[in-house]
Design a binder for these strands. Sequence first.
DNA 1: ATTTAGCACTCTGGTTTGGAGATTGCCAAA
DNA 2: TTTGGCAATCTCCAAACCAGAGTGCTAAAT
Lengths: 351, 351
Amino acid sequence: MSFDNLSQREKKVLQNLINHYIQTADPVGSRVIANKYRMGLSPATIRNTLQDLEEMGLIRQPHTSAGRVPTDHGYRVFVDMLLRQEPLSEEDSRKIKAMIKSGPKDLESILGQASKILGDITSQLGISIAPRFEEGRLARIDMIPVGEGKLLVVISVESGLAKSILMELESNIEMAELVQMQAVLNERLAGLSLGLIRKSIEERLRDTKCSPRLLKLFIDADTEIWSMESNEQIFIKGTENIINQPEFADRSRLSEFVKFLEERKALKELVESKSIGEGIVITIGSESSLDQIQNCSLVTSKYRAGNLSGSIGIIGPTRMPYSKLISIVEYTAKSLTEALTRTDEDEEKES
Amino acid sequence: MSFDNLSQREKKVLQNLINHYIQTADPVGSRVIANKYRMGLSPATIRNTLQDLEEMGLIRQPHTSAGRVPTDHGYRVFVDMLLRQEPLSEEDSRKIKAMIKSGPKDLESILGQASKILGDITSQLGISIAPRFEEGRLARIDMIPVGEGKLLVVISVESGLAKSILMELESNIEMAELVQMQAVLNERLAGLSLGLIRKSIEERLRDTKCSPRLLKLFIDADTEIWSMESNEQIFIKGTENIINQPEFADRSRLSEFVKFLEERKALKELVESKSIGEGIVITIGSESSLDQIQNCSLVTSKYRAGNLSGSIGIIGPTRMPYSKLISIVEYTAKSLTEALTRTDEDEEKES
DNA sequence: ATTTAGCACTCTGGTTTGGAGATTGCCAAA
DNA sequence: TTTGGCAATCTCCAAACCAGAGTGCTAAAT
């Protein structure tokens, strides 16, 4: 459904209406649009336009004799055609930079910080998701026995990231077996993406002379080693921001939403599925088909960490200041990419 | 302030009042106590007792001509003197057992599950905190170079737990240096508790022949290696449970509370500081001096994981069913201890 | 043709009012 | 020491009301 056929006036009215609604959360009447936005038209004229927009399904009336509010379609048209991206404020960009600089430099801390700063400066919910290891190519694999029958497996991918998994063994393993296994794994799997490895692990490790017990650990379909299921690293910060939003005045709705956030998994998959292409992706309410976020929007983006990519974004009521948020998310993603693929030369350049 | 001087009747009245209030959240009047709880006394008599209790500061009236509600002092007396611990229901104990059994066996998953189940069956907020590594004695330390100028340091403590830290190096390190460093560290530090190591690391590593660059990493006061700051593993689940509680009817209060939960750190410290002794510890509202949880209570307990100890508990409005919760938290702690210090023999015993 | 003014109509939200109900404190009787 | 009785107090709820905002339509104006 395309809306290129909107007249100039209709566009302007829709734009003003949404801008006003975003600020006030109250249905917007014809008078406000006519007067406050100096359109040089009388309220009566605006009313006609509003009727047209309503017929097109871009706005609706909560009840007779209330003003209009945008529908999800309306927001869609707004962000697609009418949105002027607002430049990032000095203050915000400063904060984002500071966030990256301060604090520890490990992935978790940085992502935690990122979600926090996103939540803070947008007054929405800030989200950050760890890079998808699946995409990474295996650089090397190390195995370290720790304690009784426990094995720490370290998976390093080419971009320099690594994850470690503590495995339980049924019985103690000979050091020699371990060394051999490690050698075989490194030899056969290095350079392959973890996703690929997971799919083809069985064939690739066939006819090796390794200890079968040990082998089994790495082939098991549900092993954590190749999948990242368990490591569902998603950071969500700023719940307190949306609690006061009128959109969540209904307690049970709020409760459902918070529950949804706590599950993490659904949100993680949603954000990852949306932020695929380059640049910012905006997802509005009904476009996601998840009940719990029917009146919410997402502003998401990818970032890169070496060869891997992760996602960040914000979520909040559809009535959100898109024009600001886009710049913020964009800049944060950019900063994150820089921070996570930083080389020594980069550091020298900075004052 | 001791309340041993309470008459039998006063005790009974307080007990009934609190029990009723816990269920209804409404101020309790003299009539309800007299009739519903068959005390064989008229409301008027109860009223006299209520006045006495009020003078003692155990209950209060929200306003004239409302019933009474317990004060924090009242709750304190209640849990100290009047509480009959309710045995765990079959269903709950089954759920807790199932929680431990199902799902992956790594620490994080188990703790996540534990907090979730606590939240679910108590309808409060379930909390679980990872064992305090500080208490653990260093078993060994491994160092694995991964990618460009990155070093994975694995700290294993005697009980079999391990944590890993990814460090950034300014420049590449020779393999030989690394091996030497590792040897020195293991030799000098093994067997010491991490807490002790952190305090005394500087002296202990003085006059070694290791690469100074490398040495510096391990001595730096704010290194993550010996402190567990960054690894602030605390799991909080069940926020949706308390949103509908009348105690959080006030939005800004709810907002503050959720913010407090998200900070994590304060809550973590609070719970850890409370759950020190053996067994269940109950902390009521004002006893914690944190604004954000003034009308909340904690039911906390330690659990053990090998030589280390961690904390779990629940938090919710002071008006919580203590008699049930105690059993639940107690049993969960016990189960957790079993699961986390499980030996192979244990596993054989199970059907 | 388009825009505007005028107007009747509708719906919401806040305020007021008026009990109904609950509960207390106290006093005097049991 | 306990209880019944009773005036007094306060909340809560529903009904009634009103002011305000906004609409849609029609007829006049541009």
